[in-house]
Amino acid sequence: MVQNGQTAAERAEIRENQVNWVLRVRRGDEAAMDALVSMHRQRLIRVASNVLRDRHEAEDVAQESFLKAFREIRKLRDDRAFSGYIYRICVRLCMDRLRSRKPTSEMIEHGDGTSGSKVETKVLVERLLQELTPDLRMTLVLREMEELSYDEVAELMQVPVGTVRSRLHAARNRFRELWIDSTGEAHL
């Protein structure tokens, strides 16, 4: 989980701080918890928002992820791995939420998806994403919106890289079909 725009020295310092905070969280230090939350909250909320498409639910999932991580921090063998650990928890909780959602029977309106405004396109993309199965949606979001590598997606979803590739292929094809159905444009 490499953050963009940081030098190697900065990354090393952040990693060291994080190890220190994890150690303190193990002893129940609330200031260290606060520091870890500040460090990861934005990314966690963004991932959850992109997957769930609901700001409030995303915040709730992010909070739940932190609580679960702090509760089970004794299970974490390597303190340097907290980043991956918290994102894995968040992804799992998002998947649980998606699976527990009732499938919507909302019909996709046929119209000019790309010729409309940016907002309209965004709304359409959101609705098309909801048509995908939880596994396909999560893979597509992590790869395309979060711009993670195949290995990172595989690690977060705890599946082999080959599965990520095949899911991504299926997700793109399904999304393309839905896009064509909804906009009538065949160039995607």
Partner: peptide, 29 residues
């Protein structure tokens, strides 16, 4: 593929910083 990637990236959610988020997590803890 590029068009699809651009489409999805444009639809990515912008997260607003919430000052109360940390307090809520600590309170729940």
């Amino acid at each position: 593929r590029d068009f699809l990637s651009d489409l999805l990236r444009d639809a990515s959610v912008e997260v607003e910083e919430s000052s109360e988020f940390n307090d809520r997590v600590i309170r729940r803890w």
